[in-house]
Simulated scan of single mutants.
Amino acid sequence: MLGYSVYLNQPIDEQLERMKRYRDHGFRRIFTSLHIPEENSATYRERLSELGLWAKKNKMHVTADIAADSLGALRLSLNKASQLKDIGIRALRLDDGFDEKSAVALSNQMAIVLNASTLTPQSLAAMLREGMIASQVTACHNFYPRPETGLSRQAFRRSNAWFKEAGLSVAAFFPGDQNCRGPLFKGLPTLEDHRHYSPFAAFVDLLHESVDDLILGDPDMSSQVLEQFIAWDKGVILLHAHPEIQDKKLLKTLSTVQTNRPDEARDCVRSYESRMLHLVDTPILPNHHHRPRPTGSITIDNQCYGRYQGEIQISKHDLAADEKVNRVGRIISKDLPLLQYISGGTKFQIVWESKCTNK
């Protein structure tokens, strides 16, 4: 399930436009944090109720991250799961201060989320023996605001393997690229690898790691990235790129939806349509700028390549300069990780981001 975050330090009515936008684009889960300043408990309870009621009305699933000492401040009780459901909370992520007995009991009343960073195979096995319902439980990883502290991919995979083996679902966070949350404003990813990915690239990567619930950790992401999610639902991967030529007609042609050939190449994405449908007018003269083709280079084979003339490619890794190949643009760095997921038969579309650059 795809989700986003709503933080209660800001009034709900100031966040409604954003909440509706994500709802309309298929985000069904809302994550919120109830780690609250004691002096603001009444305000937070009111905002939580507003959020919950809106979520119930819109058939959204609210997961609230809560520590034991926040329950009393919000006048909530684990013994009254119906009370939590009444205000729209569908699941609780149990953080500091909750014992195994409480988790077991609550799992028999509602969905619960356990902190993946503190959960051990031993404690999980003990809770399952005591009657915890595994199908009601998600192991949710933390997000990591400080650069260099996000999880390694190896550790992430190791823990996810035994979560899945035990019958738990897995949740993780991907970072935003707009209005990043303070105090560091460096994104809120689970994996450190994702710190400098686009939100969409991080999302796709988590999907390929078999994560069940994928949550935008930061409050927002740009409209350009949201367009990538919309295209994804239609089976197309959008790739943002900088042009290196000024030919508007050619750039428009290059921005049509294309398909990677089914016989997937090792070194490049090869446009099926470029030669089969003759997308580019010929002859294509060499541009005499025989530059290296770093990862993400968008190229067209020129007339020196004979029958390959007109083939559009995107390099998957660094390739040498070739006088038979014209370089016409390059995928932006934050979208480069997406290239590994354009397998044979995958549709893609180039979106030009700025004016011509010849770097």
Rank of each mutant, 00 (worst) to 15 (best):
F348C: 08
G88V: 00
Q83C: 13
I12L: 05
M1P: 05
A91Y: 10
L94R: 02
Q178L: 06
W162Q: 07
F229T: 08
V328Q: 08
Y7C: 12
K249Q: 10
R146W: 15
N79C: 00
Q258P: 12
G131P: 04
A116D: 08
V257E: 15
E192Y: 13
Q10I: 12
Q122S: 04
S152Y: 12
P243H: 03
H289I: 07
N326I: 09
P199F: 14
R275I: 10
R157S: 10
L48R: 14
A105I: 01
L48C: 12
F229L: 11
S102A: 15
H141A: 09
N260C: 03
S82Q: 11
N108A: 09
V204K: 13
F174E: 02
L78V: 13
C140L: 13
I300G: 03
K56R: 05
S5L: 07
S70R: 12
E209Y: 10
P294C: 14
W54T: 01
W352T: 00
M110Q: 02
E165K: 15
S255A: 14
K249D: 06
L279W: 04
R307G: 03
N115F: 00
H278G: 13
A111S: 10
H25Y: 14
H317G: 05
A126R: 14
Y44N: 13
D193Y: 02
I133L: 14
E46I: 01
A321H: 10
A231P: 11
W352Q: 00
H141F: 15
E264Y: 08
L214K: 04
E273H: 11
L124K: 03
A111I: 03
H141L: 13
A111F: 07
T357D: 10
D86G: 11
S152K: 14
